[in-house]
Structures are given as structure tokens and as C-alpha cells.
Computed example of a mutant assay.
Amino acid sequence: MTDTALSTIAAKLYTESPADFISARDAQVKTADDRALATQIKALRKPSVAAWVVNLFAQERAAQLAEALRLAEELREAQADLDAATLAKLGRERRTLTRRLAQNAAELATSRGERITASTLDAVERTISAAFFDPDAAAAVASGRLVRELDPSESVDLGTAVGGGTPDSPAPPVVPADEVSARRERRAAERALHDAEQARERAEGEKKKAEKAHDEAAARVQALETRAAELEKELAQTMKDAERAHADVDAAAEHRATAATQLAEAERGESAAKDALGALIRK
């Protein structure tokens, strides 16, 4: 817990214009009744311009900042259940919200007569972004007593980042029990919807694979049936050709037998002629 008197004084000082901080702090030191408190006030460091802009916004737009920090906390809790696409979408929305809050804070500071440069606005945006990612950074921003800007990539040392004592964690807005229950049910329904969408996408993928496999198999069947019909036609023609060849074989065999008989008769006739001629010669 912070010392109430010191934190109250520090909160007031850290919304003073940076140019007036030293004089306002010294005036508080002079009016302090307690010497220890005066020493603590004197030790308060002057905030950077970016820290002052965030402090001004945190104190004068406390409800707006608290709502943004609460939404950021819900996102941190829910992100473990989300897929990459949803996380990317939420990341873009969070960056948009960060820029809008930073712009609102800069406009508030400008209305106080302070000139806000592009580099200061960038530092304000980084500080608010850090509060969205880190509970300690959220406590530092919500305290309205920042001494320096914060960075999302760095851990927060509350002892050096905040003046006037270590801040308590920002109290979450009071939410009716039925609203809490409704939010839980909504998150559960969103997770169920996400799971159902994933299951549908997987089923669609399997259906496409099955349809492709079916089409490929049907094409193969059609090609094979066409080839089978061609082969059947070729087989029928081949069988006809074989029958004709068998007939040719039988005819050739018969012709061969006739030729063999004729040859035998010719050979006998030749032999008889030779015998007759030989007999004449011997006479």
C-alpha cells in the first residue's frame, strides 16, 4: 500500500504542467506539516512530457482507461483459447484502440496548452500498449503518477517508473454477477463456435479429398472398362482369325497328303520306266 498523503500529493503534482512541476513541488514541500512527508515530496522526480500526458489522461479519463485495461485483461485471459487468425485480428483491434487512446490523451494535453510532438505521441502510445500487455504496467499507468514512459518490450520497475510510492493494482470495475455469468457463457459459446468452425473446416477438407478420390477412381474404372471392351473386340477377331487358320491348316494337310500320294505314284512310274529301259539295253 502507498502512503495516502504522499500518493495524493504526487497525483496532483503529476498532472501539473511539466514546466511548473518543480515550483509546484517546492510549494508543496513548504506547506507540508510533517518533515518526513516534506522530504518524500522533495524527492519526487519531474515526469517526462509523455508520462505527464498519460498521467493527465489516467486521472481525467479514469473510467475510459479502466474500461480499456479491463478489456485488455480479458484478452490476455482468452488468448490461450484462440487460433492464430483470431489473435491477429484482436492484435489489430488492440493497436487501433491504443492509437485512439493515445490520440485522446494528446488532445487533452493540447487543450492544456502543451505542444505534443510526434515522438511524444509515439511514447504515449507505447506506454498505453505496455499497460495492455503487463499488469504492472497497467498499475503504473492507472496510478496517474508515472515518472517516465513505458515500453511493451521491457519489464516494469514500479519503484522507478512511478512517483509517490508503489501503486496498487487497478481495481476492476464492479460487474454485476449476472453480467459476469453472461460473459463467461459468451466466452464458452465463442470457444464452442470456434471449435465447431474448426471441425467444419476439417470435415470440408475431408469431403473434398473424398470427392477427389471418388472422381479419380471413377475415371480409372471408365478407362479400364473402355480398354476391356477394346480387348474383348480384339479377342473375338483373334478367335475368328484362329478358326480360319485352323481351316487353312486342315486344307494344307489334305493337300500335302494328296501331293505325297502323287509323288509316290510318280516315283513308282519312274522306277518302272528305268527297269524297262535297262532291260532293252541288255538285249
Rank of each mutant, 00 (worst) to 15 (best):
A88P: 00
R227Y: 02
D26P: 05
L6C: 03
P18F: 02
V53S: 08
L146N: 01
D241C: 08
E107G: 07
E190Y: 04
A139G: 06
A72I: 06
N55L: 11
P152H: 02
T15R: 06
R112V: 12
P47E: 04
K42C: 12
A213T: 07
L277P: 04
K212A: 15
E211A: 14
R145D: 01
A43C: 03
D136S: 11
L277Y: 09
R148C: 07
K233W: 07
K240L: 10
R145T: 05
L231I: 15
A199I: 01
K46C: 14
E243S: 11
A43D: 12
A102Y: 08
L97C: 11
E125F: 00
T86P: 00
G205V: 04
A72H: 04
A24S: 15
A203W: 03
A19I: 01
A10L: 02
T166V: 12
L90H: 12
A272P: 06
S181E: 12
R220H: 07
A62C: 12
L82F: 02
D34S: 11
L90R: 15
D134S: 12
D168G: 11
E74G: 15
R187E: 14
H214S: 09
K89C: 08
E190F: 03
E201Q: 06
L280T: 11
A102Q: 07
D122Q: 09
A85T: 11
E254L: 08
K212Y: 09
E93V: 08
R148D: 09
V54N: 01
T8S: 15
D33M: 03
D215S: 13
K30A: 13
A66F: 03
T8F: 10
V180K: 10
L56R: 15
D26R: 01
A50W: 02
D151P: 07
T127S: 13
E267H: 05
V221G: 00
Q198F: 00
E216A: 15
L150P: 02
S143A: 12
M1D: 10
K274M: 13
A118T: 13
A171N: 03
V162D: 07
I128E: 00
E67C: 10
R200N: 00
D20V: 09
D3G: 04
T31C: 08
T258H: 06
A242N: 06
P170W: 05
S169V: 07
A36N: 05
D81L: 13
A260L: 15
E265M: 11
A19V: 04
P167L: 04
H194F: 05
R148Y: 02
G159P: 00
A188D: 11
A189I: 03
E93N: 14
A32P: 09
R94V: 08
Q198A: 11
M239P: 00
H246A: 13
R95W: 08
A58T: 05
A102D: 08
L82A: 09
E16T: 13
Q59V: 08
A223Y: 01
T110D: 09
A260F: 08
R99T: 15
L87A: 10
A213C: 05
E93T: 11
T226P: 00
Y14F: 15
A38M: 09
M239G: 05
V249D: 07
E225D: 14
A217F: 02
A188V: 04
E197T: 07
R100I: 14
D20M: 10
A273I: 14
V54P: 01
